[in-house]
Amino acid sequence: MHIPDNYLSPSTCAVVGAAMVPVWAVAVNKVKKEITKAKMPLLGVGAAFSFLIMMFNVPLPGGTTGHAVGGTLLAILLGPWSACISLTIALLLQALLFGDGGILAFGANAFNMAFVLPFVGYFIYKFIKDRVKSEKGEYLGIALGSYFGINAAALLAAIEFGIQPLLFKNAAGQPLYCPYPLSVSIPAMVIPHLLVAGFVEVLFTVAIVAFIKRVSPGILYEGAKQKTRPLYGLIAALICLSPLGLLATGTAWGEWGSDEIAQVVSGGKALGFTPQGMKNGFSFESLIPDYAVKGLPDVAGYILSAVAGAAVLILLFKIIGSVKKNKTENISG
């Protein structure tokens, strides 16, 4: 779910990041109201917890494992605003220090995983919990909240990917960033989340909340009774958004269908496809020399290759050296 750099255009990153700024501002204010200023550093411990939660592998049927994000879990445990800040910090450290998720895409990642995920999850949880007043109702809320929370985040990431080829193309009409349109990105992202990751998240969240309720019920976050107005607003917004997504996929599917499929079909069976691939293969050959000649004088090209060659050799020797050194240390030390 962590979007790396170069898949989204910098402008997309900037827009989504800018959308995140007011969220952060409100979150800081809300948290300040809930805890005193002197307790602000405690958010670091929450952030450490959110970071580590993402390290856990969850067992899946058949012996495989999956990762949970734990966004809804954090919102239930810490409250949605604290969860937003904790997840933001965790994502920032992942991007900056662990190379997990892009630096430019940090805003987008924060938007999906630190804002949309915990809030959708929390509001669904709260909505159901406040209406079905029994333990079953609460766990139903946790389950549905975590399921839809992560799927909403995945859908959003898919939309961010999918609008890239529509908005950013070079002169030749080729996409500059993520090349897959909504018709590909949405099913590619959402289907695995609907079928697998969503359930991983549900099992993980329900089990942990149940454990903590049993062992230390006092430390769970007790939100004030939710005002229904913003909640209905959110649900209305979601309802408005979902046909939009469908609409977008629909048209994209249509375009793709008329162009590509027609070509393949009219070309006739498998044979029709191969020559097309070969034709493009030749244009691939010409891509690099074309760029090299256009952009760079010959001499510079030679120098660049020489530096690259030398660097590769040095790196190789250094790596071999370090491996050898380790080995001898192991033998002698």
Partner: peptide, 25 residues
């Protein structure tokens, strides 16, 4: 019941984190 075990580890980590935060404060 693998989920109970896993939630025991993660849940204890959460309770511990709360305790550590109080101590740090």
């Amino acid at each position: 019941d693998k989920y109970t075990s896993l939630s025991g580890v993660a849940g204890t980590m959460f309770i511990k984190s709360k305790e550590m935060a109080e101590d740090m404060y």
